[in-house]
Amino acid sequence: MEVLTVTLNPALDREIIIPYFEPNRLHRVFERDKMSLSPGGKGINVSVILSDWGIDSAATGFLGGNIGRMIEQEILSRYRNITTSFVHIDEESRENIAILDDHNHTLTEINEAGPTIEEQDLAHFLKVFSSLVDHPRVVLIAGSVPYGIPLDLYPKLTKIAHEKDTEVYLEARGILLTHSVSTYCADVVRPDLRSDTRVFGKEVETMADYIEAGEKIVEKGAKLVVSSYQVVNDLVFTKDGVWLLSLADPRVDPSHLLGAGDTYMAAMIYHSRKYGTDLLERAKFGMAAALAKTKYLFKKSPTIQEVEESLPKIQTKQIKG
């Protein structure tokens, strides 16, 4: 297996399409195809997309209770290219609800916090991770951490992976991101700025803020940093410079953005496995995949052909270096 994904706080994702959605109203959903249930959490989502593209991966993390078992069963019964190795715990895993309004084009997301991890389960997870990481070439660590997980777990996992010569991709937000890259930085980092725009304790707003934050993560040891900028643009940082990737046609339906970030990460991993080491090309491929994903309303992987077709729609401008 080529890739290992880590999801410490997996979820059962419920997506519901409700036209004219608004609070304080009763909405009934009559059609089956307006609702979907799928295993989720960033790492699992990336495994699913890679599986759709024919790349084997193993998924690990914590699953809790009946919801946890349901998540595991969903993964195993749907995706032949995903191997599971989760640590099961007593408390229930979380459910995430996304309400997509295909008329007013809004996306409303409700994400639960999830269970608390006990010390003994964390110790068991570390053993599982260490033995799993012996084999793959890439490890992806993404998403929030449940209660009970110390802040230095991501850097610890990164270090274990590096001891086995495995490349580490990280997507995280807020304090967790700052602490992780400062303590022991991953190779490819994508700050998740959707609900927390602080990096290194500072709010990022202007282009200059973004550039400062990105360059600092490169300084900490990342060889590639990609950061979304004003939703439809991306900033790419390597030790050789800074680039702005933008869309020739910047109109993207915000209700279709669900899963775009995970598609981005999966596509960068796909690119590195199939096409080698060019970092700017890797980031562009990621952005093309995220763009191709926005064709679909639900969480759905674009095909590799659709990703390739989106590549010419991306404009590259070098800003620094």
Binding site: T84, H88, V128
Partner: peptide, 22 residues
């Protein structure tokens, strides 16, 4: 079934009982 849930030699019996029940 591609599940590789496993246990290590140095885990306690107590851990095994908990894990197999879960």
């Amino acid at each position: 079934v591609r599940d590789v849930s496993a246990i290590f030699e140095d885990e306690k019996i107590e851990t095994f009982i908990r894990i197999s029940a879960l």
